[in-house]
Structures are given as structure tokens and as C-alpha cells.
Simulated assay, not measured.
Amino acid sequence: MKQLFTLFNLLASIMLYSQEFEGTVTYKMDYTIKSSELDLQELKKLMGTEAKTHFKDGFYLEKTDSDFMSYQLYSPKDTLVYYKNNIKSDTIKYNRVNTKTEEEFTYKIEKNTDTILGYKCDKLIFKDKYGIKTYYYSSELSLDPEDYKFFLVSNKNKIVSLMKAIYLRLEMTFPAFTVDIIATEVKHTQLKKSLFKLPKDHNLIDGNF
């Protein structure tokens, strides 16, 4: 009976992780300043120190404690990103993510480079005109690249097609600073579809990245 119970748990785990990840990931952000013209506290205020991202069926909703893009909602059905620069604002802007031109990039994948929150991670080093981005990700937390195939902004479609997973850590290197975004909690849970609907009584306007 004990062996049967163990086998059942193993099969349940395999079935769970073979599906696209649904749930919530909490991240923290740390910054390293490389320019005397930047103020660390102002950078934290602008970009935030914590983010909470919800994933379901190709949708994602991210909220941060930042002054810039503190609310971000992606819908694969209409290939739009909706966002607010102030979480309390009653205006939501939107951008089409499928109208940009794909840009040149280089990449390298390294296997089994780290373990984060118990997940064994591969590493994707991705370089384009925006800088160098290093992603740590686990196949246990999968995404479907089909949901992002028209997300051309910042080469996101290419990045998701390479990882086929959410990231658990992201290091971004720019000339003036670096930011290290790392997951502090991963919660598998069924989310309501209503979570990914736009708030009511908001102005909706065309915006620009």
C-alpha cells in the first residue's frame, strides 16, 4: 500500500509539471549602481523592489511597488500589453506587441547551473541591443511558446521559445546599472479568469513603450 501511495504521488507530480504553469510567483529586485549620476533610492522607487506575477493560459498579470509600469497585463488573445505607471491611476494604456520589427540577438544556454527554491535551473544568456539578460529557468514551470509567438517587443517571443518556461531569476546588465530579479516564492494554484480582466471604470488609451 505504501509503494502504491508513493507511485500515485509520483504520477500526480509528473502530470502537474507537464502542464503549463498556473500560479503566482513573487520576486525581489536588487540593484547595483555603476554611474555616479544615478541614485539608488530613486532607482528603487522608479523600478520597484518587489513584484508579484500571476500566470494562467498564456496570460500574465504583474504588479510591482514601482512608479513605472506598476500594473502590467498581457493578453495572448489580442496581443496587447495593458499597463499603468501608477497603480492608483484610473487610466490604463495599451501597446500592441506584434507590430515591432524583430531585432538581432545572440544567445547561449548552459544546463544545470543553479537551484532556486528547489528547482534545478538552466541558464539562458541573451544579448541584444538593449544589453545582456541572463535568465535562470526550470522546465518544471513551463510556458507555451505559442502564447507569445507574436510578442515581438524586446524579442520576448524568441526568449520564451528558447526557455519554454517562466524565469526564476533574471539578471539584466546595462551601462549605468544592473538589476537582479529573483523569485522568493512559487505558488501553484488555480487562478480565476476574472483576475486577468481589466479593472472597470478606467480610461483606456493608446500608449507607447
Rank of each mutant, 00 (worst) to 15 (best):
S154Q: 12
M69Y: 03
K164M: 04
L10C: 12
E146D: 02
L43Q: 05
I109C: 00
D128C: 09
G131M: 04
L43V: 05
K52W: 15
L40T: 09
L43E: 05
D122G: 00
K187N: 14
S70A: 14
K133A: 01
A51S: 07
S139P: 09
L191F: 07
G48V: 02
E104Y: 13
F177S: 12
I132N: 00
L191G: 11
L198S: 07
N203E: 08
T64R: 14
D30W: 06
F68T: 03
D67N: 07
N98W: 11
D78T: 11
M29Y: 13
L117D: 02
L162I: 07
M47H: 10
K84G: 11
D206V: 08
E50S: 09
A51N: 02
Y27K: 08
S161F: 01
L7D: 14
T101W: 07
D147M: 01
T106I: 07
G131D: 03
Q19F: 13
T184W: 04
K123E: 04
E104L: 14
S139L: 09
L11T: 15
Y107M: 02
M69N: 09
K127Y: 01
Y60D: 10
K164G: 04
L124G: 00
I87V: 09
D78V: 10
Y83R: 03
K200V: 02
S13T: 13
E62I: 08
A183C: 11
D114R: 00
K192W: 02
L162S: 05
K28W: 03
K111Q: 13
P145C: 01
Y167T: 00
K129W: 05
Q3Y: 10
L168Y: 00
D180G: 04
N155I: 02
K28E: 15
M47I: 14
L11Q: 15
T26S: 15
Y74R: 03
L143F: 00
F105V: 05
K84W: 11
Y130H: 07
Y27N: 10
N112C: 08
M15R: 15
I159F: 01
T184I: 14
E185K: 15
S138W: 02
K164F: 03
Q190W: 04
Y94I: 10
T115S: 07
G48R: 06
Y148A: 00
T101K: 14
L7H: 09
I92G: 05
F126V: 00
T24D: 01
F151L: 03
Q19L: 15
F5C: 14
Y130E: 09
